[in-house]
Simulated assay, not measured.
Amino acid sequence: MMLDSGVSFSSSGATVQGPKWRLSPELVVGFLPAFRHRSSGEVRLCQLTDGRIARVHILDSMPAHWVAERDWDGRPSALVAAVEPGYLRGDAFWCLADLARPGLDG
């Protein structure tokens, strides 16, 4: 299952329909799709079934206790409310709201 983060990475400034953020590719270099459990602070990178890091938010690699619902095939379709999407950059987790008002490096 993929989540639409609503972020456009177009360097031309074009965005898809609806309220979207416009971020330059330079800003998101080094950001890896991840989820964080608000209660424990644990962060998990999104991974493909073969273990490679995913380039988009997917639910397939999340721990079973983070999964609230599964589809007919047993794949995660929703996460518990305490889990939030975001990005891991270095050792810092950025939630989606952080991307809207970044405190950029240095």
Score class of each variant (00 low, 15 high):
Arg36Asp: 05
Arg89Gly: 00
Glu42Trp: 02
Ala68Glu: 14
Glu26Trp: 08
Gly6Ala: 06
Val43Glu: 05
Leu23Ile: 06
Ile53Lys: 09
Ser24Trp: 07
Thr49Ser: 15
Glu69Asp: 12
Ala81Cys: 03
Leu23Val: 12
Val16Phe: 13
Ser77Val: 02
Phe93Ala: 03
Ala81Asp: 15
Leu3Cys: 08
Val7His: 04
Val28Lys: 08
Leu104Glu: 07
Ile58Arg: 09
Asp91Phe: 04
Ala81Met: 04
Gly6Arg: 08
Pro63Ser: 02
Val16Leu: 13
Leu99Pro: 07
Ser5Gln: 02
Ser11Tyr: 10
Pro102Met: 11
Met62Thr: 07
Gly30Asp: 00
Gly30Asn: 01
Arg44Trp: 04
Ser40Gln: 05
Leu3Lys: 08
Ser61Thr: 02
Pro76Thr: 02
Gly18Glu: 03
Gly74Ser: 05
Tyr87Phe: 15
Val7Cys: 02
Arg70Leu: 03
Gly86Tyr: 07
Met62Pro: 03
Val83Tyr: 02
Ala34Thr: 07
Ser5Val: 09
Cys95Met: 02
Ser24Asp: 08
Ser5Thr: 11
Val56Ser: 08
Val28Ile: 14
Arg55Asn: 07
Phe93Pro: 13
Arg22Trp: 15
Gly41Asn: 06
Trp94Lys: 04
Ala92Thr: 15
Ala34Leu: 00
Asp60Ser: 14
Ser5Cys: 12
Ala100His: 11
Asp71Ala: 06
Glu69Leu: 13
Gly51Thr: 07
Cys95Val: 10
Phe31Tyr: 13
Ala68Tyr: 06
Ser11Trp: 04
Leu96Asn: 03
Ala100Lys: 13
Leu104Ile: 12
Phe31Trp: 03
Glu26Ser: 11
Val43Phe: 06
Arg75Glu: 13
Tyr87Asn: 02
Asp71Met: 12
Thr15Gly: 14
Leu45Pro: 01
Val7Ile: 15
Lys20Ile: 10
Val28His: 09
Ser11Asn: 09
Ala64Glu: 15
Val56Cys: 05
Leu45Ser: 01
His65Glu: 11
Ala81Trp: 05
Trp66Thr: 04
Val16Met: 10
Leu59Asp: 04
Gly103Asp: 10
Ser11His: 09
Ser40Phe: 11
Glu26Pro: 00
Arg55His: 04
Phe35His: 04
Ala34Cys: 06
Ile53Trp: 00
Arg22Thr: 05
Ala97Met: 09
Ser77Glu: 12
Ser11Thr: 03
Ala100Leu: 13
Pro25Ala: 01
Lys20Met: 13
Ser8Glu: 13
His37Cys: 15
Leu32Ala: 05
Ala68Met: 07
Trp94Ile: 07
Gly6Thr: 06
Tyr87Ser: 00
Tyr87Lys: 00
Pro63Met: 09
Gly74Asn: 07
Val7Ser: 01
Asp73Val: 11
Ser12Lys: 10
Arg52Met: 08
Ala81Pro: 10
Leu48Ala: 08
Arg55Lys: 11
Leu32Ile: 14
Arg52Trp: 04
Ser8Tyr: 07
Thr15Lys: 14
